[in-house]
Design a binder for these strands. Structure first.
Lengths: 238, 238
DNA sequence: CGCTTACTTGAACTCACTCAAAATTCGTGG
DNA sequence: CCACGAATTTTGAGTGAGTTCAAGTAAGCG
């Protein structure tokens, strides 16, 4: 076991760039002190560590401050299906607010920093107020939409289209958070992660990415992605 | 245009076997008169008719009294991806309660009978009361779960496993409603419907069903399905 | 009974997989 | 800063599951 670890200096909510968005806006309502009071611990997680195991009923929910994660399930035959990726700023596990056991695991893909919120207190806070409940409602509806987009991709698109769709989706999510410089952005996913999300094998992901690069559509190099031809990708992902 | 049509005698809520379940329980709370007041028209729909077109913002939501339907989207290349099947008793389009435009179409696969509820009034009724809102919340969470099950199937299972998983899922849903006689039940889906839901072609669905039949796992004949080996199917669908 | 729709089956093909080895990149410790 | 080992990516050859296209068969339905 290697020596550890960054003694993280917790970010104060008052100084957090994310405090006006997502769950933090809902819980803080513009008041940093109130938000700080709602928040639990803040902590880091190294790559490949599990944040949550299928069947767990965690007593915290989270917000991602930095780093990428994956939500996945493992089949009987041992293969992994990634259901979604967790990006910086995401509020994690709205579906676990009610205290049901998780139907999925969550793993850090890069090292991550997370803010934790006590589950039960947060649930009470949120479901006690129709307007706040509406926020969760929207999150759930968005997750349905995203799942169904994925179903479309898996059911009806060839490998190149699936990759195009996923990359565009991630780019859109990062852009909205100001985390993409135009068409270029961080992209720490390994081929194996892409494969497990898209129903492919790492080898075929490699070949397909090579083809996309050759056709001047998309470049992925050393944990960065560059969209060269948005139109073209969009067409592939119809 | 063929001559029409069954002058349906509307089922009275007081006599409806579904009145104590799902949305009808929520809206009626045991009082048939109250439910009758909440309900709008009741009507029939012939097979292949659209109930809803992608982009629509319908001013009604529905409950299926009888018949099967499909929720689907159509890709640029014209291919159809079925996202889910609507069975008798299902409450349709909880995600449209809020008045957002539909991201999918809905079609009757067999002839259907539906009860309509005015959307806006129902939404107010439901979201005004935390307990009722909770019902919708659960529906949404279940839909997420179902979508993610489908993602698993499409991403990681071969054709036989996908079919096994879908048939077991439908059997489970029908059983809960008392609509399956043990391991035998109505199954009006065409091979094309299965194919469009499972990311396959009708030809391959036919071949795979033949194999399942040969292995004494599952028989589908003239709109009926018989589960011969539940264990075996479950294993295929891991 | 005839027509349409759905299902089955065959042959050729293709996309993606498997298995394996080579090349590259990354992380770590010296 | 370099060197080493581990992880990841690339590439190749062979295979297989599922597709496409087409023809033939069976099953509903008016």
């Amino acid at each position: 076991m290697p020596s550890i670890l960054v003694a993280t200096i917790p970010t104060l909510c008052a100084e957090c760039p994310l405090r006006h968005t997502s769950i933090c806006r809902v819980l803080g309502q513009g008041d940093a002190a109130k938000l700080e009071a709602a928040r639990g611990r803040q902590f880091s997680l190294r790559a490949k560590r599990l944040l949550l195991r299928e069947g767990d009923t965690p007593n915290e929910v989270f917000r991602v401050l930095s780093g990428w994660g994956a939500r996945f399930r493992v089949l009987a035959n041992g293969s992994r299906q990634i259901l979604s990726f967790d990006l910086p700023g995401d509020f994690l596990t709205p579906e676990l607010l009610c205290g049901e056991p998780a139907r999925f695991s969550k793993m850090a893909l890069t090292s991550m920093t997370l803010c934790a919120f006590p589950r039960e207190r947060t649930a009470n806070e949120v479901f006690g107020d129709p307007e706040k409940a509406n926020f969760i409602e929207r999150l759930l509806v968005r997750r349905i939409r995203d799942s169904e987009d994925r179903i479309m991709m898996l059911g009806r698109l060839p490998a190149a289209g699936r990759i195009a769709g996923l990359v565009l989706d991630i780019h859109r999510r990062l852009s909205r958070r100001g985390m993409a410089a135009g068409s270029e952005f961080e992209f720490p996913l390994r081929h194996e992660d892409l494969a497990d999300a898209l129903g492919l094998t790492p080898a075929h992901v490699s070949r397909t990415l090579a083809a996309l690069r050759q056709n001047k559509l998309l470049e992925i190099h050393s944990a960065r992605a560059v969209i060269l031809d948005r139109e073209g990708l969009q067409k592939l992902a119809s």
